[in-house]
Simulated assay, not measured.
Amino acid sequence: MSNYSIKDLEQLSGIKAHTLRIWEQRYSLVTPKRTDTNIRYYDDEDLKRILNVAMLNAHGVKISKIAAMTSNEVSEEIIRLTDQSLDHNDQIQALTICMIEMDEDRFEKVLTTSIIKLGFEDTILKVVYPFLTKIGILWLTGAITPAQEHFISNLIRQKLIVAIDGEVGNNTGKTFMLFLPEGELHEISLLFSTYLIKKHGHKVIYLGQNTPDADLISVYNMQRPDYLLTVITTSPSGEKVQEYVDMLGTEFAEAKVFVAGLNAAENTISIPSNICLLAYAKEIKRFLVQMEEHIV
């Protein structure tokens, strides 16, 4: 069980701390606990309650009415809303609740419903990516545990792998080699890129997480792919990002190399001529469309 400050509740729910305190005092929506040193905190049940209240209130249900509802009534209304709603924020909020509860069945239903309504690509781009950005910030601030983050990330990873397996076209186009640098384990953007590339009829050589430089160079020399794609989220970092990009520019001078990820985007680096820096890995879709239009 995790402990949360009122600022954590604010970040997770989007409701201002001042408003939460008013709701707490006026409607007894949650009751904070206190540590031995008299510091207020909230537990998982409190967080789930506030997340549900925030969603219902956003849909026009008055706080006084929500306060009078039983837990089962609140849960049933939340399920009804997420099953019917096309609002991306509702889906993101529902996924947040699934993460806190570590509820795989509910997660599956929320994501499947979104895929049916929006399609797989739009679900990833408009729901999953914003959700991952949100939980990334929450993980850094300590508002959620690594276990919760890993739980939900692995469920999303499974969905992507299933979608990739469903792309069984001829793959007669160009060849892309996808990999993560040594020490890099954040694979979701790379998997989504794989899905997009295969969907557009190209071949993928997928090396995945934590690829040693020597292995990368060896596979490249054997396969001679047309394009390379990597994502630098946490590793390498600092000045080593420039070293890594320089290595890619030198070792793969005959190929076009796409580099995405937070560590690449947030560092001021010089870019070799064969490197294309992407603000987000999802930008690879724009390039794929341009290829089909014979622009590239």
Results as ranks from 00 to 15, higher is better:
Phe120Thr: 04
Glu121Thr: 11
Asp122Met: 10
Asp122Ser: 14
Leu125Phe: 02
Leu125Asn: 11
Val127Leu: 02
Val127Lys: 06
Val128Phe: 01
Tyr129Pro: 00
Tyr129Glu: 08
Pro130Val: 07
Pro130His: 10
Leu132Pro: 00
Leu132Arg: 08
Thr133Tyr: 09
Ile135Arg: 07
Gly136Glu: 01
Gly136His: 04
Trp139Ala: 08
Trp139Phe: 11
Thr141Arg: 12
Gly142Leu: 04
Gly142Lys: 09
Ala143Leu: 03
Thr145Val: 06
Thr145Pro: 01
Pro146His: 12
Pro146Ile: 10
Pro146Met: 10
Gln148Gly: 05
Gln148Ala: 15
His150Gly: 05
His150Ala: 13
Ile152His: 08
Ile152Val: 15
Ser153Leu: 04
Ser153Ala: 15
Asn154Gly: 02
Leu155Arg: 15
Ile156His: 12
Gln158Tyr: 12
Gln158Asn: 14
Lys159Arg: 15
Lys159Gln: 15
Val162Ile: 14
Val162Tyr: 13
Ala163Arg: 12
Asp165Thr: 11
Gly166Glu: 15
Gly166Lys: 14
Gly166Val: 02
Glu167Phe: 06
Val168Ile: 12
Val168Trp: 05
Asn170Gln: 14
Asn170Leu: 14
Asn170Pro: 00
Gly173Ser: 11
Gly173Asn: 10
Lys174Leu: 11
Phe176Ile: 09
Phe176Ser: 11
Leu178Phe: 06
Leu178Thr: 13
Phe179Gln: 04
Phe179Ser: 07
Pro181Asp: 08
Glu182Met: 08
Glu182Lys: 15
Gly183Ile: 07
Gly183Glu: 08
Leu185Cys: 04
His186Gly: 00
His186Trp: 01
Glu187His: 07
Glu187Pro: 01
Leu190Gln: 06
Leu191Ser: 03
Leu191Asp: 01
Phe192His: 10
Ser193Met: 04
Leu196Cys: 07
Leu196Ile: 08
Leu196Asn: 04
Ile197Leu: 02
Ile197Asn: 02
Lys199Tyr: 05
His200Arg: 06
His200Cys: 03
Gly201Asp: 02
Gly201Ser: 07
Gly201Lys: 06
Gly201Trp: 02
His202Lys: 11
His202Ser: 11
Lys203Gly: 00
Lys203His: 13
Val204Leu: 03
Val204Cys: 10
Val204Gln: 01
Leu207Cys: 08
Gly208Met: 02
Thr211Pro: 00
Pro212Trp: 10
Pro212Met: 10
Asp213Thr: 13
Leu216Tyr: 07
Ile217Phe: 13
Ile217Asn: 12
Ile217Gly: 05
Val219Lys: 13
Val219His: 12
